[in-house]
């Protein structure tokens, strides 16, 4: 479960002054559901997810992730979260096995538990062929599978995905989408940020549209379609953020 309450993040830039990257955002993601965070580039999606993963500290407001407060208990939050983004790369000079084991140990798993978890993830994600090869020699698909295994090594209750399919070919992107669905089936709480409308339609149970750091619309696809009088996700998005970038009524 993720509960964000009036989450706000302000960056101070010498040239641009105060930037409200996330502005008073509140939402709830429940276990066994996928919450889609939809927004254009620079809308505040990544900052919101980094706040939830405790990579950044909120300027105001707060959130609980898997029951832990993101400000008071950041390390416990991170122990309950699997975070996957295109910006979370892997260590090229380690093998896939070493990578998964390293993150397992950092999550407090014993050597025996790490070995068992590596074996299980290798079976589930079909990693055996390249498990003992160095990541630097991997194809994008192999890297993505290893990243997924890295994200799942501690079996987190909450999964945060920040535009995980950006720059990937169709087959690799499909694997990611399938993996996200699997997480829902296993009862995980999933938050998924994207600006690809088709992914939202395929995956999300609930959608939050973020624009200029503010959550301008929220609901299931059906609810949003009804509210804006259109069924196409792209149209819903345009109407929600307004053609001139202003909030829709």
């Amino acid at each position: 479960m993720i509960e964000a309450r009036n989450l706000t993040k302000v960056f101070r830039d010498k040239k641009r002054g105060e930037i409200r990257a996330v502005d008073d955002v509140s939402f709830t993601c429940r276990p066994g559901r996928i919450y889609g965070l939809l927004g254009a580039n620079g809308a505040g999606k990544t900052t919101t997810l980094r706040l939830l993963a405790t990579l950044l500290r909120p300027t105001a407001g707060g959130a609980t992730v898997a029951g832990f407060d993101i400000v008071a208990e950041p390390e416990r939050v991170r122990a309950s979260v699997g975070f996957l983004a295109t910006s979370t790369a892997l260590y090229g000079r380690l093998t896939a096995r070493e990578t998964i084991a390293y993150f397992g140990r950092l999550n407090g798993l014993s050597d025996a538990a790490v070995a068992a978890r590596v074996a299980r993830l290798a079976d589930e994600l079909d990693l055996h062929e390249f498990l003992d090869r160095r990541v630097e020699k991997f194809s994008t698909g192999m890297k993505q599978k290893t990243s997924i295994a890295r994200t799942l090594v501690h079996d987190p209750a909450v999964l945060i995905f920040d535009e995980p399919t950006i720059g990937l070919d169709v087959m690799t992107a499909r694997n990611i989408v399938r993996f996200v669905r699997d997480c829902r089936t296993r009862g995980k709480t999933v938050i998924y940020s994207t600006h690809v409308m088709s992914e939202v339609e395929k995956l999300c149970d609930l959608v939050g549209i973020i624009h200029h750091g503010r959550l301008v619309a929220e609901g299931s696809l059906a609810e949003l379609g009804e509210r804006y009088g259109v069924q196409d996700m792209e149209e819903i998005f345009i109407r929600a953020v307004g053609a001139d970038g202003e909030e829709a009524a």
């Binding site: 405790t54 990579l55 390390e75 991170r78 979370t88 790369a89 993150f103």
Partner: peptide, 14 residues
């Protein structure tokens, strides 16, 4: 530069 900093920072290690 390689993008691994964010990966390690989202682990629970202090």
């Amino acid at each position: 530069e390689r993008g691994t900093m964010e990966t390690i920072l989202c682990s629970p290690v202090a």
